[in-house]
Design a protein around this nucleic acid. Structure first.
Lengths: 126, 126
DNA sequence: ATATTAGTTCATGAGTATTGAACTAATGGA
DNA sequence: TCCATTAGTTCAATACTCATGAACTAATAT
């Protein structure tokens, strides 16, 4: 299995970051990684907000996050340990990730307040 | 010609905003609208950073920006006057747009410093 | 009326996303 | 050592989305 590729921090683009986080599932994964203190495996996200994702799909999402520079993945035995690259990115683009994370959280809270028990659709760009 | 559709501010999603701005051309257009003091027409952007865009493509880009809630377009005679909805959005998602705009600007400056005279490619997500 | 200008819609080819199935690689037993 | 299990990747097929030339609409001017 070929080694995992991570872009150098100077090759990380704003557009790439925005694109990676423009998908609800990826945004969810990233928020969870950013919020937690420990690196997470991919399969911890096989279920996201009431929907089950095929693992091939999940693998692609992690690949997009990794190639955008948002996360770092390290192989430990059979699993991957994923963590964010927030510090590096925050140095390069100060305030960008915190404000996106805050906005996603605000949106989530508001949605939760509006519809007590419902399903969040993926790729809802409207 | 059917009237232009703008989402209500409470229907604007973070994902939609991030997606709209994940394209270099749209990000460029939005930054210009945000930076300038006057509403701009679409055709002012027929040329963007050394490349010429077909007007059908440009029309689609404005549609995406409009439907994401980032801009408002008003018909004045035969042309559209486009302006941002930054104030509304900043109230709903404080700090989000300023930090994205700042990051795009920082990236642009850095790129300009690195390559004295070159062409910026569209949809560069790497 | 006709021409011009600004922007939209449509059709199509190119590109990208999703996902089941097959695969690889690491590890843990018999 | 060999087989099973587990975690994740790759492949292939289908479905979807994007970019763009051509045809169109609507407003204005001549």
């Amino acid at each position: 299995m070929r080694p995992l590729q991570h872009p150098a921090i100077e090759d990380v683009s704003v557009e790439g970051i925005l694109y990676a986080l423009s998908d609800s599932n990826r945004a969810h994964i990233f928020a969870a990684l950013a919020g937690g203190s420990q690196p997470c495996t991919c399969s911890q996200f096989l279920a996201i907000s009431n929907q089950v994702l095929p693992k091939s799909t999940l693998s692609q999402h992690f690949k997009v996050l990794r190639e955008s520079g948002l996360i770092r993945s390290e192989r430990h035995g059979v699993e991957l340990h994923n963590s964010t690259r927030c510090e590096e990115i925050n140095q390069r683009f100060p305030g960008l990730l915190p404000s996106i994370t805050a906005a996603l959280l605000a949106q989530k809270k508001r949605a939760a307040a509006k519809r007590p028990r419902a399903v969040t659709s993926a790729r809802a760009r409207g």
